[in-house]
Each structure stands twice: as structure tokens, then as C-alpha cells.
Design a binder for these strands. Structure first.
Lengths: 345, 345
DNA sequence: GTGAAAGCGCTAACAA
DNA sequence: TTGTTAGCGCTTTCAC
């Protein structure tokens, strides 16, 4: 009604000739309040335009019912889905969410974590920035026993839960697939090897080569920032290579797509001359021609599980003893990698 | 150090034999404190691991230095950029940000707004959900003089600022371009006409037709949810149409791309048989073949301006008298719409 | 330039 | 089942 003063539980109490504690209890659905009283309180509170004051409550209770999220960027399909999963679980459990982006910068990640820490979040869900070189900025949280869950881009750390897929196996499968298609000289486009996702995919890549007696050739490895631009640059270098590679395993779809577009501009036939496999199953992988073979992962589920684990820790207020949750992934074969017409079934 | 108790300004005060008020003032850089005292206080506070308690402070001050954001989804390039712009400005001005998604649902939007209201945000930045039919849920904010800024998907409302582009003009230009390419039967794929972005683009579309003496044919209008799936369905219908359309103006890129992919599967030549124009300049528009003609808009800037205006209102604590800020857009012509080889220059 | 003290609105231990 | 009361940590008016 008015733009003026807030109504408090005291006002409600006075209006009903009750005590503030009764009102407080009724509003939180405390069991020890008579049904009738509860009903009346809730009704008049609503009528008077009462709204709960989180600050007073948090100040008193020393916890905020708020969870912080730090992600590198939120413009990928993967992140959006993961976030949707996180949000679903947290809101179902009565937690608020503060989302912040590190923009792939270590410095920014430090500042996000510290801001969230100062906002007194009860727990944190994090996917690391590309650049992040150490985990010192999480110490402030560990020191206060504030639980932190990492997902996708994780790092080893005492006592925190990681939610991931088996990137090693996925990399291995993607590469094996290329080898099965007859590729002999396979380029790998990877990211910062400090990040598990990239180092593991690379490890899987090398293992597949090794098991197939294909020697790993350093000149076929490109460490990039996995951007669109990176794809353009790598494509340029590939075009100049003497014996040209016949396959590419890119650690994400963005770069894979950009490479395909660039190579095709130069007249290279995909997959005949160069077969390509990406990673993430972004929507774009189904638009690029030829459609991109890629690794799908349960983004939404990863988010849900990360949130569920965190809330579990919060409720039990003791760290559970599991430390890593691994979800299933799935190689989706599309036209960008099919060199051989399969033998008649 | 310890996982135990928080250190407060009282602790700092005691350690230095000062009063809490002095410490409080020093920490906020109040002018009436001697430099030396200030220095000492700041040093020992840091040393003791003091951290500011936002709740106590907000409780006292009645404002939170936090801004709420409600967007439909954050999985588009447009939203991610707009959000990045918002974040830049707000963080530069010492505001925190709480981001929430309505998932395009009216019901969810109501709940987001109410949650943010209860979190006592100082102001709100909103882009409306697809479904939202009225603005009643913002009344709680208006009643308390909490400023709300809308961007992109806006609605008329007394006293709040809208940050948009001229969708009417953009729609007009996109359609005119198709007409110039010789299109006579142009399909429009639009969204919910309650949303300004769709109704205005549609209005521009009709106006262009009108000015070129092309009659508007209702059977060429498709009102959809602007999803990928919608594109597939529209493509199906187009394929069945008797005299086939020769142009499509889609109110976003997602649907435009999906239509193109589907039509090409059916053997239709783009742009020769059907020219296509999208909207938003999402990255995907440069990957689809042929590259999509589309309308570019300054997403990041829209975000920055929305945030700047909000902070302006917050600081002046009086609504400024501008109500709508219109930014420039730009039609980017690519191959999906070029039917005619341009006459020799 | 610094201190004393009241109070923001809520919760929870304890009392009744 | 309900009430009393004492803070949570900070800011700010007023006093010195």
C-alpha cells in the first residue's frame, strides 16, 4: 500500500495480541503452535503486507540459506543447462542462489569467491576458470568449514566433492573412433592442461594412439584457449602442414565447428580428407555441415547432483565421505567423422 | 585460521582500545577519523581476519547494495552478453548481483520477483518472460519505490525505464531487404505478441509490406514459441504450402536456423527458392550454411545502460524523467537472403 | 576526533 | 501452547 515503513512481526503480534515469538514460529510453521492461531497469524501477516526480513534472520541464525555459484561463463548450452539443474534443486530446498561469472579469469575468480564469502553464502558450487593456477582463494572457505562442490572443471582438494564425467575415457573413445575410421595423423586441439577436463581428454587421446601403435606427434598438438578464434588459427596452421592430418579431436565443439568452417572454406572435404570430433554436444554441432560427431554429457544432471550433494553436506553439517561423483557420457557419431561406409550389416 | 567464531568490530575495538564506532567509521573511510588511527584499525582488522557482516549492516541501513536480475533464460549469446554488461557496471559501483531465471514462465517470473523483493534488493533489472501477461507482480516493488529497469522484453509501465532497440524499424528493414531481393510471399515467424519485441517486429514487417503494395497474407504468419522445435514445425508447414513462400523473416536466429536446416533437408535451395532473415546475430548465424542474414544488437551495451540507469536512480533516489532508451541496431546481410547478384557497381 | 548507547527485526533458550 | 528476553553485528545520533 504505502511506500513507507516495513511491517514487522511485532506489528503483527500487536495486532493480534500475541507475542512476537509466536508470530515468528507460526510463520515458520513451527509444530508447537495451534492450527487456528497459525492460520490467523498467516492471514493477518499477509493482510498487513508483512515480509520476512532475511537480514535480521540471517544475522540471528548465522546462516543465509543462500548458495553461491561461480562459473567461467554462462553463455554455453552446457552451463545454462547445468545452472538450470542447480537452480531446480536449490529452489526446491528453499535456498537462494547467487550466480557469478569468472569470465575465465583467475583474478576475477578470486574476487567472485571472496565476494560470495563475504555475502556469507552457506556453500559454494564452482566450475574453475580456464586460467586458475591454484586453489588458495578457497582456503577462506575451507577454514570456516563452508562446503564447496566443484563440477566439470575441478581440481583435487582435500575434502571437497567433485562432480564430473570420465574425461579420460571420453577422450579415449573419441580418438579410438577416429582411428577406427582409418585416421593415422590425428590433431588434438586442447585447452589449458591445468584443467582436468583438458588434461584428461588429452590423456585419453594419447592412450588411444598408444594402444593402436600410432606414435604421438607433438606437432599435431595445439594448446589453445578453445575459442572460436583459436579454431580459425589452428585451421590456418593445418592448411600449411606438409603431410596433412586426416583427423581432428577437439576438446570442445566451439573450436571444432570453427575449424570445420575454416577448412571447408579452403576446400578441404570433411570428413573425407579430415574427420572431426568435438566435445559437449552443443546445439551448434547439429547445425554445422557436416553434423559434428561429439561427446554428449548430462549437463543438467551434473548441476542437479552438485546441488544435491552440497545441500546434503549442509544439512548433515558433516562432510560425507564420497569425494568424486562420475556421470556417464556418450559419444554421438555424426557425419563429420564417418570416413568409411560401414560394411554391410 | 580457526573454523570457529567470526571476529567483529568489537573484537577489533577491544584489541586497539578503541570504541566500536571508531572502528566502524575507520572501516568505511569516514573523514572524521585520524589517518593514523584509520591505518592501525585497517591493519589489525585484516590481521585478525575480520570480515564485514552484510546482514548486520543491511539490517541497520535498510538497504542492501544488491541488485536483482530476472531474465527468461541465460543460454543465449544475447543474454550472456547483456549480463556481462550489467555485471561490469554494477560491480564497478560496489553492487552485488543476484541473477535468476524465469525459464520463460510467468509463474516462475512471479516467484523470482517475489524472492528478490524479499531479499530486499535495492533495484531490479528485468527482461520479461515469454508468457507474462500482466505486470501485477511488480506492484510490490513500485509500492515501495524500488526502481525497476526493463530491457529488451519490456512493457509499458508508469515511471520505469525501458532499454530497447527500435524493433519496429528493425523488422521493417529486415522485411524491406527481403522485398528488395524480389520476395513476394514472405512468411513471418513471430513469438507471443504480448512481448514488444515480437509485436514490434511484426508491425515493422507489415508496414514494409504495405509500403511495397504487398498484401499481408494471414496464412503466412506463424505465431510460435520461437524454439528450435518451432522451426522444424514451421518448415513442415511451409513444405506443404501450395504456392510456396519465397522469403522468411524470423524473429530470432534459433528458429531461422532450424527452418533453414529443415528446408534444405527437403531439398529447398536457400536463398534461391526461399530467402531467410533472422534476428539477434547469434554466433550460430555464422555457422549455418548459407550464413544467416540477421539483425545485430548491442547486447553488452544494453546491459551496461540498463545497469547505469538503475544505479543512477538509486543514487539520486528520485526517478529521472527519461523513460525509454533506444539503442541502435544493424541489419547484417549474409548469404541466406541474397537472391539477386547486385548490379555492377 | 572519539565514545556511549540505542535499535534495526528476528530467533531461540528458557520460563510459564 | 505461548510469552519473555537477550542478543546477532553494525551504524549513527548525540554527547564530549
Amino acid at each position: 500500500m504505502k511506500s513507507g515503513n516495513e511491517v514487522t512481526i511485532y506489528d503483527v503480534a500487536k495486532a493480534l495480541n500475541l507475542s512476537p515469538s509466536t508470530v515468528s514460529r507460526a510463520l515458520k510453521d513451527h509444530p508447537h503452535i495451534r492450527k487456528e492461531t497459525k492460520r490467523k497469524i498467516i492471514a493477518t501477516a499477509a493482510e498487513m503486507g508483512y515480509r520476512h526480513n532475511k537480514f535480521a534472520s540471517s544475522l540471528r541464525q548465522k546462516h543465509t540459506n543462500t548458495i553461491g555459484v561461480v562459473v567461467p561463463r554462462l553463455n554455453s548450452h552446457f552451463m545454462a543447462s547445468a545452472l538450470a539443474g542447480i537452480e531446480k534443486v536449490t529452489s526446491e530446498n528453499g535456498y537462494g542462489l547467487i550466480i557469478s561469472q569468472s569470465q575465465e579469469s583467475w583474478r576475477k575468480e578470486i574476487s567472485c569467491v571472496s565476494t560470495l564469502f563475504n555475502s556469507r553464502v552457506d556453500g559454494l558450487i564452482v566450475s574453475l576458470a580456464f586460467e586458475t593456477k591454484n586453489m588458495d582463494h578457497f582456503d577462506i572457505l575451507f577454514n570456516k568449514d563452508i562446503p564447496v562442490i566443484f563440477f566439470d572443471r575441478v581440481a583435487d582438494c582435500h575434502g571437497c566433492i567433485n562432480v564430473i564425467i570420465d574425461n579420460y575415457k571420453a577422450g579415449y573413445e573419441a580418438t579410438s573412433h577416429l582411428l577406427q575410421q582409418g585416421c593415422k595423423r590425428i590433431v588434438h586441439i586442447g585447452g589449458n592442461m591445468l584443467r582436468n577436463v583438458y588434461s584428461e581428454r588429452f590423456r585419453g587421446f594419447k592412450q588411444a594412439l598408444y594402444e593402436n601403435n600410432v606414435e604421438f606427434d607433438k606437432s599435431l598438438l595445439f594448446i589453445t584457449d578453445m575459442s572460436e578464434q583459436a579454431g580459425i588459427e589452428v585451421a590456418g596452421k593445418i592448411l600449411k602442414m606438409k603431410p596433412r592430418p586426416d583427423g581432428i579431436f577437439s576438446a570442445n565443439d566451439t573450436t571444432a565447428v570453427s575449424v570445420i568452417v575454416e577448412l571447408e572454406k579452403a576446400g578441404i572435404k570433411i570428413p573425407e580428407e579430415i574427420a572431426v570430433v568435438g566435445f559437449n554436444n552443443e546445439p551448434i554441432s547439429q547445425v554445422v555441415k557436416p553434423n559434428l560427431t561429439t561427446v554428449d554429457y548430462p549437463a543438467r544432471e551434473i548441476g542437479e547432483i552438485a546441488a544435491t550433494s552440497l545441500i546434503g553436506q549442509l544439512k548433515n553439517s558433516q562432510s560425507s565421505n564420497l569425494s568424486t561423483i562420475v556421470l556417464k557420457h556418450n559419444l554421438i557419431v555424426r557425419n563429420s567423422s564417418i570416413k568409411q561406409i560401414p560394411h554391410n550389416s
